[in-house]
Design a protein around this nucleic acid. Sequence first.
DNA 1: CAATCGTTTATTATCGATAATAAACTATGA
DNA 2: TCATAGTTTATTATCGATAATAAACGATTG
Lengths: 254, 254
Amino acid sequence: MPPPTPGKPAATCLARHRVRDAIQQLILSGEFQPGQRLVQQELAERFEVAQSVIRESLLELQFCGLVEAVDRLGMFVSGLDAKGLRHAYQIRELFEGLAARLCCESACRADLRELAELARKIFDLASRGDLEPMSQCDREFHFRLVQASGNPLLARLTEGYQMLGMFVRANRDPRQIRDEHLEMLKTIEANRPAAAEDLARRHVREAWHAIEEQIDQGTFVPHWVGQVVEYQAAGDGGAKPTKKKKPKERKKTT
Amino acid sequence: MPPPTPGKPAATCLARHRVRDAIQQLILSGEFQPGQRLVQQELAERFEVAQSVIRESLLELQFCGLVEAVDRLGMFVSGLDAKGLRHAYQIRELFEGLAARLCCESACRADLRELAELARKIFDLASRGDLEPMSQCDREFHFRLVQASGNPLLARLTEGYQMLGMFVRANRDPRQIRDEHLEMLKTIEANRPAAAEDLARRHVREAWHAIEEQIDQGTFVPHWVGQVVEYQAAGDGGAKPTKKKKPKERKKTT
DNA sequence: CAATCGTTTATTATCGATAATAAACTATGA
DNA sequence: TCATAGTTTATTATCGATAATAAACGATTG
């Protein structure tokens, strides 16, 4: 007769997931910088779990694209270079376009209303200069969009992989962003799939152009940006043992 | 002074990867059927590694989309239903289209020559009725295409996730497949990105239609098909604890 | 001073054992 | 017979320890 052990929180989430989310948070918040090495033992002590739990969490994050693993060498916070971002945006453009198109037949009124609400909120926050909440809202807008698309694989890929580029902030006119969002929604509501797809793709392209400009001007900060959204998804990934990573920053013999 | 231990194979690959590939093979070959439970202990004995190694391998495969995990319950070979396949093909269409488009500026002559070679080989094999090698060749064709696109993220997503749909066989006229492949290549060679993208997308749509027809007729076998290609990539993924899975097939008390 | 080789150390990869949990089973009572 | 509660068992999740490995260090020699 095993009593429910009243002292413990029943139905607790897997430690692996808890730690995964926490580390993700740390990466997105900037506390863990791109390129930084993630030492398993250190993290294990920090989160008070065994090293193997950290391993598994990092594996999940690897597949999210937030960390990269090199066999026998370690795991590192993924870097963010211009080329990688361009590639990510090429794909994001497809995803958002497909999402918008599919939404024409899948999104319900409630979804659209909520999306419009978010579009306005993004504008409000931007007007007030609250950049961080604005970014978060913007991400949520796009997450909701793919969720409303009715293609779970699309949602999983977008959320799971985070599409890398979703976590950098494009420096654009908030008014324009809002208008693009709203027009997209209007087109979806009008049930014009081709037009909606086109608008969504254009929207992503505009974002990319803004980021590209920042990169060219040297004003781009190669940082993950944002807080973890409430979503529930993860990993994938794969080991690319061929890729070499700077193994530096190893402790000296104290 | 640790001598190189001459008895052991130096620079051996991670056990995790070895096992991952082996299990993938077993799934694709059909020995492990969709829906089947993957018991860690069992696999650990079979591959002569610790259970934790199996865990990590399965995690990787989960992110590939080949297995699904349910927290505290186990891992199962992914199922293949009509809806899931449709969603996969929606995305595959985008990916192949983008790949073809990008190839116009990225693919070198050698790539194109090799692709043309493969296109012919696919036809030859199909003519002889060698369906399995044919499927493998076809997959290789599409893998090479995304690799030649010059967008590594695209390649990783396509290969890593295997795009699910890439591992079912569409029942089509081999001649038509060949012609579509070759026309696509010709368009790439002629540097007509928009046309190439369009052709690639159409090609995927055709494949999907063939599969859809098979499904409607009830002649579709819900099986993973194929052998592992030599690629090196992996998962992502994420746990979706909400999803319920048949926990059945548990051993009786012997 | 530069290059090479062995030693040390930090770190990952793997292992075997234990704790936690969910399903299967069994007994009990209406 | 059916439902329900307790027990057992199969299995996963976690832990702590060990083996394997790659970088850092240090001495030795040209």
